[in-house]
Structure formats: C-alpha cells, structure tokens
Design a binder for these strands. Structure first.
Lengths: 334, 334
DNA sequence: GTATAGAATGTAAGCGGTTACATTTTTTCT
DNA sequence: AGAAAAAATGTAACCGCTTACATTCTATAC
C-alpha cells in the first residue's frame, strides 16, 4: 500500500501538504491540491487509519458494549448506532458483556485499550459506582438503559416505572382485579422500576396486591415458564399477568397453554419491550414499546456532538414508554 | 495513560525489555520480568493497541460485514464470531452492507482502510468477481454464504439446494401433490439453489410443477404477503407451500389466514433458515435449519488459524441443512 | 583463569501519519 | 517599488510501540 511519503514525492510537495489535503485542513491552493489528488489517485492511496490514530490521538472508533449480540433486542440498537456513526466516518467496535460483571468489565477494559474515542454501554451487571468511576476517566462514556444522576447528559433511558404503570392500568381498565406480576431480577434497577410501576397502578386503582402473586425470573424465556408454574401452584387465582419483559411472557404463555388455559380468554398477558417477534406470536402480544433504536441513535449523536464536535439536532435523554395493545389481552369475564 | 517509556524507567530496564515482557517474546529472566510487571502494575499501564498495531503491522482486529445488524439472523452469526475472536484477544469491527452493492463495497473499503487483519463477509449484492478480486488483494477474506470454487478454503456455506430438497420431499411424503414455491430474488445464487432443490424433489417424485405456482419475493415478510395474493389469484389449487425463507413464510401465512385459510389443515407451509422466532409462531413453523452460528464460528477459527497462526481444531466449510418439522405442516387430506 | 558460546539486555531505526513552527511565496498597501 | 502582512508550503519532532542488531553478562569448558 502506498504511503503518504510516496504520494508527496510523486506530487512534488511535502508530507505536510499531502496531509493537509487528506484532512482538508489548513490552506492549500487549488493547483497543488489537484496535483496531490492526482498522485493519490494514481497510486491508489488510502490513508492508514492506524497511523492517523497514533499521530492524532483520535482513533475514530467508538466501542459499543451490549449484553448479547444475538436475540431480538440489541441488534436493533447496534444497527442504529452503526448507521449514525458510519455516516460520520466512525468505526464501531463491538463487544458482548454476557450480563456478567467480570465479562462486562473485561470488555470495557478491552475497548478502552483499543483507544476508543468514546464508549456506548448497555451494561447489565456492573454497578453505578463502577460506571461513575469510569465516566470520571479519560474516555467519554455514554450509557443506555441507565439513569445516573451525576452524569445525566450521558444517560439514555426509558421510564420503566411508567411503562409498567401503563400496562397494569390497561389490564385494570379491562376489568381485571386479581393480577399477578412476573418480575425481572429484582437487584436490577430496571426490574425494580418496572415492578414499582405495577404496584403504583394497583394502588392508584385502590386494588390490593396479593404478594403470593409476585414471582421473579431472569428475563429469559425459560424462567417465564418456571414462574408460571409457581404462580399456578400458589393457589391464588388471577385473571391478568403483567410481565417484566416479552421473553418471559412467551414462556409464561406457553406454560399456561400446556396447562390447558386459553390466552386471552382465561388469562390476559402483557409483556414489556415490544420485541419485534411479539407481533408474530399467536395471539400477538400486548406489550410496552421500548424504543431502543431511537435510544441508540441518540447516544450515537451525543458521541458525534460531544466527542467529535459535530453539530447535531436536539438529543433526547429520557424516553416515554408507549402501550401497544394487541390480542393477548381481553376484557375480564368471570 | 502511562507509556512503555515510563514503565521502563520505573523498572530500570530498556524499552525493548518491557516490550518483551508485554508480548511474552524473547528471553527475559524471571527477576527482571517481575520488576517490569511490578512497574506496570504500579503505573496501571495498559499497552496502546494503536501503537502496537502501527509498529507491528498487525491491527488485531477483524472486520465483519453483515447485511443487517437487526433482524433475527445476523446477530447470531456476529455473536459467535465475536465470541471466538474475543477469546483470542482480537477485536471485531462491524459494518452493515444493507444488501446494496454500493454500500457493501463502501463498507469493505472502510474496513480495509482500518487495517483489519482479515475480513469476514456475508455479502448480498456484490459479485463473485468482485470478491475474487478482493481475495487476491493483501487482506485475507473469508466468505459466509458463498461458494466460490477458486477460494474454497475461504468459503463457508450451506447446501441450499439440498435444504429445499428436504423440505419439499417432506411435504410430498405427507401426501401433498400440488405444491407452490415462493422463491427469493432469483438473481441471487442462494435463491437459485433453493429453487433448484424444490424442482429436483418434485422431479424425483415424478410430480409435475405448474409454473403458475412459482412466485418470487425479496426475502422480506411483506413480499411473502404479496406473493400469497398472487398465488391465490393464479387460480391453480395447491395444498403445500415451500418458501425460500422464514420471513416470507410468516407473511404468506398471515395473508392466507386473513383469507380464511387455516394452517396447516388447509395449507401446509415450510420455511427455510430456522430463524429463532419460528418456534414462537402459532403454529410453530416447519423449516430447514441454517446453522449460521456454527458457520460464523468456523469462519472465525479460520481467521485465527490462517491469519494469526493459531492452531485450531478442524474447520468445516460446507454445511448440511437439517429439516425441522413442527406444526405448520400436516398430512394432505382432500 | 581465560576463551567462548549462549543468554539477557540495550540501542536505535522505523511504522505512517499529524502538527507546531519555520520558511518561502504572494498579495496588499503606501 | 519596497515593506509589511497574509497565504502557502516545508521541516522535523513526535505519537507509543516493535524489532533487527549490537552489546554486555553469565555459565561452561579446557
């Protein structure tokens, strides 16, 4: 591969001048610019991004950490991030954290040592304190799905509480009185928020909640199945189930069906996330929309604006959930 | 961030020695190694990957191109590639080609200028000739979902023809005689292969195929819906439908239902790819498994072996499809 | 004890760019 | 026309590391 040196020789100018035309910086007459461009053309020259990074202390790459690369959720986020960043000539380096504290930290270290100009993280297991520490470091950090007050301008998150509130309220409005709640891992703040929204909706409607009908899963399908078994064995009747995410809802529905229940006539179910396959389900799942694509896009724009100094249209930090009613919910009938 | 220079000063050794302990290369006494490690520890030193790359002409990053980052298919591939590569300390740089020739080429250029040590490409629109040209270049290229004879050791692909053959055969064995085929874009070799498998199965069974019942889509759900409309309007009866992928099958099924047909009693449908949500569908879709995760893993291993010289267990290039029969297919009844 | 091979360590030249500063050329103004 | 200011270009140091080669040290053999 040709280097800048060969280009400068062929064009009969100095290294600095070539660099100037490459970066479109400084002053260069039209004539010499043309000479240089011709030389670059002729040699098929492409700047070596690595060398540029080393010299300029800018890698033009941003590291993105997601819990998982497969699955219905994070690909969408990744997609909008890549889209936005790629259009600005920036690279995306990915890493998966696998929802494990050690692996998440490792991945972050990994990305940082790669001299990423910024990090966009959707972490799962790592603590707020760790992230704050990280944010105090040299590399700018942007967080998706977290809300840490001290770094509000770097956090993009959904109002989880409100989302569950809406979902629960919808079930109540359909006439359901005895509701069960299938929570996410309750040590996680989003799972807590979602549960809190459920409780608030119940309270606002003047309904009491039978704690027997609270059960916890790990956001995966299988745990939804197991949760349904526990709920059914608990001995308390319920006509509505609010789930902390769609995957668990799928598992729960499947288990309920196996036990001979019909959805939604015997049981109304709402999910959370509006993962794309919910509309392929039968019945299509009622759920709460989580605009992860927009959130990714906003995070990317923040990077472009705050790190690369590119002007951007307004950036949104806080997102409102939206209820999507489909066929897995129906009016209560005794 | 501390540099190798500061480490060498603190440890009282030369740059070269520090480099040696970092890379575990050359000879270093246990004593000096310990001194250096202590110094690195004390300074919180982390090697600058960019500088390493520039000096060693190894970026330790591999570029991966997928058609789309979202959707049910490529995340899985990406996931296994990242997994494998990450374990070996290599970075994954991603780019989406959006199934458009220009964008695919741009993305490839983009990755190449980043000095990727290797490229793993799942292209859609670019020609075999272009890829061959690319493969002749400096950066090693590995192809997923393509089979180009001249570079067989860099191609990982599924026997599409055989997959369709199996799917079609299954329908025939269930007693169906009048079959429709919903093809992918027929200018693409995989779509051709799948169609060919269908035809071969029909021929082998001594069945004639009514060309009226061939229709083409673009692998997306909406096109499946439209295709079903055309098929139904064609006026030729059929009791089985073989689809070139799952997404189109979803659309087709949905349209058929809207027209009052029941699946599978009125129409048996088989998909292709075994995308993960097919089992959430109702009825769960019968399909052909496409082991894209394993293929990604194999491509990653090839990179590790051929580019980074790491010994690897056997690598597989050609993959056999496997039929997955679920509930969208049933025995024919007149 | 000395010569000598082999092991450990050090020296310094890049890798391919960027950029502060110096120098030369061109333009402007009196 | 000549001086001063502005614009264009060039020079060279530096980014943080690797690595070929040179040098020094250590252990072995006689």
């Amino acid at each position: 591969m040709a280097t800048i040196y060969e280009v400068s020789k062929l064009a009969g100018v100095s290294l600095a001048t070539v660099s100037r035309v490459i970066n479109n910086s400084g002053k260069v007459t039209q004539a010499t610019r043309a000479k240089v461009q011709a030389a670059m053309q002729q040699l098929g020259y492409r700047p070596n991004a690595i060398a540029q990074s080393l010299a300029s202390a800018r890698s033009n790459s941003v590291g993105v950490l997601v819990p998982e690369l497969h699955g219905p959720f994070f690909g969408i986020m990744l997609s909008s991030i890549e889209d936005e960043l790629r259009a600005a000539g920036k690279h995306v380096i990915i890493s998966a954290g696998h929802s494990d504290e050690t692996r998440e930290k490792e991945s972050i270290e990994f990305l940082a040592s790669r001299q990423c100009d910024a990090l966009i993280l959707h972490t799962f297991a790592v603590s707020n304190e760790y992230l704050l520490d990280l944010a105090r470091g040299a590399v700018p950090v942007f967080l998706i799905g977290r809300d840490i007050a001290d770094i509000a301008q770097q956090c993009f998150y959904l109002d989880n509480e409100q989302g569950s509130y809406l979902a629960t309220q919808a079930l109540i409005e359909l006439g359901h009185r005895k509701l069960a709640y299938l929570a996410g891992p309750l040590w996680k703040s989003d799972a807590q928020g979602r549960y809190a929204g459920f409780r608030r909706a119940m309270a606002d409607a003047g309904l009491s909640f039978d704690e027997q009908l609270l059960t916890e899963g790990n956001y995966q399908e299988a745990s939804g199945r197991e949760a349904m078994v526990r709920l059914l064995n608990a001995g308390s009747a319920f006509s509505g189930l609010v789930c902390a995410n769609d995957e668990m809802a799928v598992g729960a529905i499947d288990e309920a069906r196996q036990r001979g229940m019909a959805i939604p006539s015997d049981l109304s179910v709402v999910g959370f996330d509006n993962v794309f396959f919910t509309r392929y389900m039968h019945p299509a799942l009622s759920t709460v929309n989580y605009p992860v694509d927009v959130m990714g896009r906003m995070a990317a724009r923040s990077v472009l604006r705050d790190v690369y100094g590119q002007p951007q249209s307004e950036v949104q930090y806080r997102f409102e959930p939206r209820l999507v009613m489909r066929a897995s919910t129906a009016a209560f009938r005794a």
